[in-house]
């Protein structure tokens, strides 16, 4: 690590003020990406603004039929929440497949989506459910939030405060983990919502994306067989030492089928 100044504000407003005052500052949530990056000296922020002391960022509640998860809520809390299990069990399942217990007790949903790692799980749920990302100053629709690899619509001084998940009719997530990192090599989130069927794919491409061809097929017939007629274009997908683009394209279909079967119970 390089040296930095550490701050632990008690409010979102104070955190935003710090970000504005210190242009080279970084936000610290669960730290599961940032701390290893710092330890390897791959980043040199002047200041760290720790969000862990802001009570308003943490917690899970219902709000007008939607599920609101505070940005600093750790994955483990989502995994074990009765409210989540009752309302959108797919989210509890997804959270339970992130990393290991230590990771789940520290890593947060806000940190995950703000980082937008191409292989992270949460972006699939946020995009797959058509959730809304709430920040200190506005609300951003999931379709507008994830803009590219490690890129989001967030301003430099903007802080995610919560994610608002509308309750779907049915939803499920199926993940094929990378054997080394256990991040998603391919993860598919499928949801039948009031606004239609949504399918989000993570791990396969530089950024989470919607598989619209499958969404159309599922709108006509929400069943695993609907996947058979859909072509996944491998040319858009990642190819690396763990999986070729061809194999990832194949896995997208397999995981999609499994997610659909699981959503159907």
């Amino acid at each position: 690590m390089y040296a930095f100044e550490y701050h632990r504000p008690a409010s979102v407003a104070e955190a935003v003020r710090l970000l504005r005052e210190k242009p080279e500052a970084k936000l610290l949530a669960g730290g599961h990406t940032l701390i290893p990056t710092l330890k390897q000296r791959l980043a040199q922020p002047s200041d760290l603004v720790d969000l862990g002391g802001i009570a308003e960022l943490r917690g899970i509640r219902e709000e007008g039929g939607a599920l609101v998860i505070g940005a600093a809520t750790p994955h483990g809390e989502v995994e074990t929440s009765d409210l989540v299990r009752r309302t959108i069990p797919a989210l509890a399942h997804l959270a339970g497949e992130i990393g290991d217990p230590q990771v789940r007790n520290r890593g947060t949903i806000g940190g995950s989506i703000a980082n937008n790692d191409p292989a992270a799980d949460w972006p699939a749920a946020v995009l797959g459910l058509g959730a809304t990302v709430r920040t200190d100053r506005r609300e951003i629709a999931a379709d507008d939030f994830f803009t590219g690899m490690f890129e989001t619509a967030l301003e430099a001084d903007e802080i995610v405060t919560a994610v608002v998940f509308p309750r779907p009719r049915r939803a499920a997530y199926a993940k094929f983990p990378n054997p080394a990192s256990r991040y998603a090599m391919v993860g598919v989130f499928v949801a039948e919502t009031d606004g239609g069927v949504r399918v989000a794919v993570t791990g396969a491409a530089p950024c989470v994306f919607r598989l619209t061809a499958l969404e159309r097929a599922l709108a006509a017939n929400f069943a695993p067989e609907a996947v058979d007629g859909v072509t996944v274009d491998a040319s858009e997908l990642n190819s690396d030492i763990h999986a070729s683009a061809d194999y990832r394209a194949h896995l997208v279909k397999v995981m999609a089928k499994r997610a659909i079967a699981s959503a159907l119970g």
């Binding site: 990378n178 054997p179 080394a180 990192s181 991040y183 030492i241 763990h242």
Partner: peptide, 11 residues
């Protein structure tokens, strides 16, 4: 070395 950490070297 492409597998230079536990993110890519599967233990």
């Amino acid at each position: 070395l492409l597998t230079g950490s536990f993110m890519d070297y599967a233990m």
